[in-house]
Design a binder for these strands. Structure first.
Lengths: 212, 212
DNA sequence: AGAGCTATTTTTGAATGCAAAATAGGTCCA
DNA sequence: TGGACCTATTTTGCATTCAAAAATAGCTCT
């Protein structure tokens, strides 16, 4: 198995659930489940520790990182900056193909909203944000975004939304698509910033934090 | 030796010179010079590869990463966003102590400018930018900034400056300090963005790129 | 019975060993 | 002479092993 594959499989295990934040990372079991020895697994652990997904306790193993309130704030602050920048850069660079893709996702997302299907809604939502970042055509930005997104995914996509917030989010997304279509970089950055700021406030207000 | 220490020593070797971009990383020699075995060194290599400082060629070893023109553009684009964000966040958060520190660094920097001592100038310059990021009090932002700064350092602080650019940079830095003192977040973000954009144009124009 | 101490097991971090891949070197033939 | 092919050496990636640290269990003594 390729090194990067171990990293992404481990990242998946940590972000999409099977090991909750704060839990001990069972080196032994993971080695068995990935059918590799401890050496490559430990290499992946160090990489994810550098990313902030794992905390290494010297001589006492590694645990899935927990997000504190401060972590959530910091991650959202940076995420805001990155998404706004992505929007600005995407406006002059986005292709018609990519624009169509986002419009389709948006239509889909509205369908899911009508059906009150939160999970599918979030999936579309996430794909739209990722598509905008991709359209910015900046690999460094995309890498940072991916890293941040992995860490706040839980907080971002698990915090429940009030009906009003949901309706507002939908309107904001219409504004996002509109600004992209008009290639209004400044406007898009502004909307994205507000969109994320609102989400942060919502998450912080919900008191989302995984402990100390 | 601690794991993090190996990573930062290796990062130092890669950024402050002894292994030029594109060069093969001599695993053996580094093991000897750090007095460790290959296992911890390879862990550090993977971490730095994830950061973009090292490229791993499967079955063919690792090399110090080279910056292409595209890399330089991307790094500056993100650096711009991060520094502007740092400035915005720093305005309401910076302490008087930190403000004094930056004012001192600024005075120092102007001295070095007067003496036309480029190296000392760059050192102060770097310390000022780092101090602003620190004042933003956001560890995630600081981590990303450090990672970008490490990759771009050569391009940023080695590209020669024309007398006009240097004079302009000094004026811009006066504006930066002024905006900080007035706690003018929007103004500071604006100045920082322009400051970095100018630097990027300068570096790109100088054709700084380390190859493919 | 329970607190505290020691012995044993388990776990961690790093060195070593090993098989596979890549590289270098040399030989043979056109 | 030049180039294709084959072998020897080095290098790489990973599994294994080993020593030290931590956790656990089993004592002793009050």
């Amino acid at each position: 198995m390729m090194h990067d594959e171990v990293v992404s499989r481990l990242r998946h295990v940590l972000t999409e659930g099977e090991i909750p934040p704060g839990a001990r990372i069972p080196e032994r079991e993971l080695c068995a489940s990935f059918a590799i020895s401890r050496t490559p697994l430990r290499e992946a652990l160090k990489v994810l520790a550098a990313e902030g997904l794992v905390v290494l306790l010297p001589n006492r193993g590694s645990r899935a990182a927990k997000l504190t309130q401060k972590d959530v704030s910091e991650l959202f602050e940076v995420c805001e900056a990155l998404e706004a920048t992505a929007g600005e850069l995407a406006c002059p660079r986005i292709t018609d193909e990519q624009l169509r893709e986002i419009a389709d996702l948006q239509a889909n997302m509205v369908e899911h909203y009508r059906a009150q299907d939160l999970l599918s809604y979030y999936r579309c939502n996430r794909l739209i944000h990722e598509a905008i970042v991709r359209a910015a055509d900046n690999a460094v930005l995309a890498g940072f975004y991916e890293s941040i997104a992995a860490r706040i995914r839980r907080a971002r996509f698990i915090t429940p939304m009030s009906p009003e917030h949901w309706a507002l989010a939908i309107r904001e997304h219409e504004g996002i698509l509109n600004a992209l279509q008009r290639r209004d970089a400044g406007g898009l950055a502004h909307i994205l910033r507000n969109h994320l700021r609102r989400k942060r406030e919502e998450v912080v207000r919900a008191g989302f934090a995984e402990g100390e």
